Simulated scan of single mutants.
Amino acid sequence: MEGIVTVIILLLLNLSVIVILNEMIQTNPGLQDGIFIIKRSIVIGPARYQLWSWENVFIGAMLIADGIVVYWRLIRRYRQMQLRHIIDELHYIANGHYDHRIPFKIKGDTQRVIESVNALVDSVIESIQEERRIEKSKDELITNVSHDLRTPLTSIIGYLGLIENRQYHSEEEILKYTNTAYNKAIQMKSLVDDLFVYTKMRQADTPLSIAQLDLGQMLEQLAASFELEANEQGMTLHVDTPDQPIRIQADAEKLGRVFNNLITNALKYGDGGHNIYLRVKQVNANEVAASVENDGAEIPQQSLDQVFERFYRVEGSRSKATGGTGLGLAIAQSIVQLHGGYIYVTSAPSMTRFIIHLPIQHGQKLQAQIPDTLGGTLTDDETTETH
C-alpha cells in the first residue's frame, strides 16, 4: 500500500512539473529558441540522431528517479518490518523461552545484528548456568564442611560431657577422654586450615613470594623429610633428578605444599605399594615437568576426573581410617594453576602418577596438554609424545 501511494504521489508530482514547464516555455519565446538550439547541437551515436522531443527525455529521467524513490521507500519499509519481527523474537526470548534463537537469515548488516543477539543470549544462558553451578558448589561446600566438622565436634562434646558429668572411674579414663577430645580438635583445626588455604588459593589475586629455586633440590629435601614415615609404612622414596640444576621462579613455600600433599596422598592411599618416585625434568626452554608416582593400588578410571575435586575421596567414604580433609589435591591444583601451570593424574595397575607442568619464568601461563593415553612418565620419548 505504501508503494502504491508513493507511485500515485510521484505521478501527480511529475504531471505538475511537466505542466508548469510547458507553460513557462510557451510564454517565453527566448527559452523556446534556446531549447531548439540545444536540441540541434546534441547528437547520439555514429548515425548522429538528434533529440527533438525534450518531453520524452525529461519524462524518462523522472521515471528513473521515481523508480529509485519507490525502491528506497519499499526497502526502508521492509527493513522496518524485519526489525519489528526481530523485536517480537526478543520479547519472546525475554518471556522465558531461553532455548529459542532468532531463526532469520537476512542479507546485510541486519544479519550481523541477529547473530550478535543470538550470541548474547547464549552468553547470558551460559552465565546463568555458571551462576547455578557456583551456587550448587557453595551448597556442597557448606554441606561437606558441616559434615566434617560435626563428626569430630560431636566426639569432643561427648567426651568432655563425660568429664563434666564426672562419668569416669579413674584418672586414666580422664586422660583417655581428654586425649581423644584433643585429637578430634586437631582434626578440626586441620580441616579449617586446609579450607582457609583452599579458598585463599582459589583467588586470582593471591600474592606469591616469587624466588629462584632448584626444583630437584626441593624434591630431595622433601624425600628426606618423609623418609621415616615412608619406612614405617614399608615404602621407599626414590628421587630422580638430572645432573644439571633445574631452576624456576616460584613460591617455594606454596610449591612445597603441593609436593607435600602429593607425597602424603601417595603414603595414605598407595595400598600394596612399596615405592614412591619423585621425578623432575626440563621439557623445553620455558617449561619443566615433575611427577609424584607410586606403585600402589590403581585409581579407578571413573574417578580420575574427580580426584582434584574438593572433598572427593576415591575410597568413597568420608570416615575411613585414612582420614584427611579431602582438600589436599584441590589445594595442589589451585597452587599449580596460580603459578601458570597445570596438573593431571594417570593410573595403571603398575603405577599411579601425578604429573605437574610449570613455567620456568614467573608470569607465563602454560597451555594444558594432557595426553589421552594413560600411564605416561617423564621419560624422553613420552615427554616428546605428550608435547
Rank of each mutant, 00 (worst) to 15 (best):
A224I: 12
Q203K: 12
S137H: 05
E173Q: 13
S170F: 05
D139C: 08
Y182T: 10
L228Q: 13
Q233S: 09
E164T: 08
T206G: 02
Y182I: 02
M218W: 00
S225E: 13
Q212W: 10
M201K: 07
E173P: 01
Q187C: 00
H147W: 15
E131K: 13
H169I: 04
L160Q: 10
E126P: 00
K176S: 14
Q233D: 07
L153M: 14
N144K: 15
F196C: 01
E131R: 14
T143A: 12
M218H: 00
L208W: 07
A211S: 15
N179E: 10
R150P: 02
Q167P: 00
I210T: 08
I186V: 13
P207S: 07
I134R: 15
E173T: 03
K200P: 00
L141G: 05
K176E: 14
L160H: 06
I174Y: 01
L213R: 04
P207G: 03
Q187Y: 00
Q203C: 00
G216A: 07
Y168N: 03
T178I: 03
E173S: 02
D194A: 06
P152Y: 03
R132V: 07
H169E: 12
D214W: 04
Q212H: 14
Y177N: 03
K136V: 06
S146V: 08
E227W: 02
K184W: 00
L219W: 00
P207K: 09
A204E: 09
S209M: 04
L222I: 09
L195E: 04
D122E: 12
S225W: 01
R166F: 14
A223E: 07
D214H: 07
I210N: 03
L141A: 12
L160P: 02
